Computed example of a mutant assay.
Amino acid sequence: MDEKVILLIEDNPDDELLTLRALKNNNINAQVKVARDGQEAIDYFFGAEASVNPTPAVVLLDLKLPKVSGLEVLKRIRADEKTEMQPVVILTSSIEEQDLITGYQLGANSYIRKPVDFGQFMEAVRQLGLYWLVMNELPPS
């Protein structure tokens, strides 16, 4: 079985490092690809190299991104027939209720506020990894 891929869309280097550390410390065995702004994320799916990029088992999407917002990235993913069923989990520090509502309206599979506490963040990432990489079944490509 091929190694599963997580696409982490995160512009904050500290949050990126924390997420990567949490995945590693929880023995979540997946290849992690990182897009550091919304345009990189869109290019991952629709750019010149998209055909060689592995399909992620799950996308972990921050909302407050440079160039293109996370909500716009989600909208683009849902609008294309090739990616419309791609699992997308919004993983954000946003406490804006409208972000939560809009995220679900645009088709997010889940919305998780990043816990501030390191231990809680580690547990949240552990549960995310177990569910999306072990328990969840993806539709056929």
Rank of each mutant, 00 (worst) to 15 (best):
K114V: 05
M1H: 08
F118Y: 10
V52C: 03
V52P: 01
A41F: 11
P66R: 06
P115R: 07
P56T: 03
G47R: 07
E10Q: 10
P140S: 13
I77V: 15
I95M: 15
I28Y: 03
Q105V: 09
Y131W: 04
D2P: 15
L61R: 00
S69E: 04
M85P: 00
L63K: 12
P87E: 10
D2W: 07
A22D: 04
I112Q: 12
G38M: 07
G103E: 00
L138A: 14
V116Y: 08
M85V: 10
R36I: 11
M122E: 12
V34G: 09
I28V: 15
P56G: 06
V68Y: 08
A22M: 08
V125N: 00
E16W: 07
M135Y: 05
N12G: 03
L128Q: 02
D2E: 15
N26R: 08
K33W: 14
V88E: 02
E96M: 14
R36H: 08
Q120A: 15
M1E: 08
F121Q: 08
N12L: 05
L60W: 02
L7E: 05
G103H: 14
P140L: 14
E96D: 06
E16N: 03
Q86R: 10
N109M: 10
S51Y: 08
I6C: 00
E81M: 10
P139E: 13
D80W: 03
D14M: 11
V116R: 11
I9K: 05
A108N: 11
R21L: 10
E3T: 11
L7F: 04
E49Y: 12
N26M: 12
R76N: 14
L61Q: 04
I77C: 10
K67G: 00
